[in-house]
């Protein structure tokens, strides 16, 4: 049993900062940008990226929140919460939407989020930003901005904790086959 902290609060801060710069560079500015955080931990991450951009560009990019509970397929619903909350999105039609989540794994959650987003409007494009990409995709989905790639085994448990949602902050991998994970 191996249990290791992969990202400290400083690591998370630097990753968020880099992603913020990458997004602005990739977009050549902030025109048309909209952040959409996926509940739960994508929301504070989206807010952090937006406030980082505000700090160095002086532009407040709108941040929405998306709950995908009503869009999950049966597999990812396994053991899922019955708790669903209202989504709150700015107008996304014609915008460049940056979808933000904490961990990218099978891609099924992102698939559900894409379905949900498209019900709200027709964005010019949708890009994906995640704090952690842990691999094991089951769908043809990839992230455009990644905080950290973490090779994992399927049975590893990747735990992301953020100050705003959890009162604590770290990224940790707990699992039997996590021995190959390097910092």
């Amino acid at each position: 049993m191996l249990d290791s902290v992969i990202m400290s609060p400083d690591d998370v801060r630097r990753a968020v900062m880099r992603i913020a710069h990458e997004i602005v560079e990739h977009n050549r500015g902030t025109d048309g940008l909209v952040f959409v955080g996926m509940r739960t931990r994508g929301v504070p991450l989206a807010q952090r990226i937006a406030s980082a951009i505000y700090a160095f560009e002086g532009v407040a990019v709108p941040v929405g929140t998306l709950d995908i509970g009503l869009y999950r397929d049966d597999l990812s619903r396994r053991g899922a919460a019955v708790n669903i909350q209202p989504s709150d999105l700015p107008d996304i039609t014609g915008k460049r939407v940056i979808l933000v989540d904490d961990v990218l794994y099978t891609g099924r959650t992102v698939r559900a989020a894409l379905d949900a987003l498209i019900d709200y409007g027709r964005p010019e494009r949708i890009l994906l930003a995640v704090l952690v990409d842990r691999g094991h995709r089951e769908l043809p989905i990839r992230a455009d901005f990644v905080g950290k790639n973490i090779p994992t085994a399927r049975n590893d448990d990747v735990q992301v904790r953020l100050e705003e949602s959890d009162g604590d902050e770290y990224v940790r991998v707990a699992g039997v086959a996590g021995a190959e994970v390097s910092r």
Partner: peptide, 24 residues
């Protein structure tokens, strides 16, 4: 300084649903 400002702003962000999923 910009980083500190970022952190301060993040901390001021309105509270939102915590990870208490399925608490009920």
């Amino acid at each position: 300084t910009s980083v500190r400002a970022t952190e301060a702003r993040a901390a001021e962000a309105p509270p939102f649903a915590t990870g208490s999923s399925d608490s009920v």
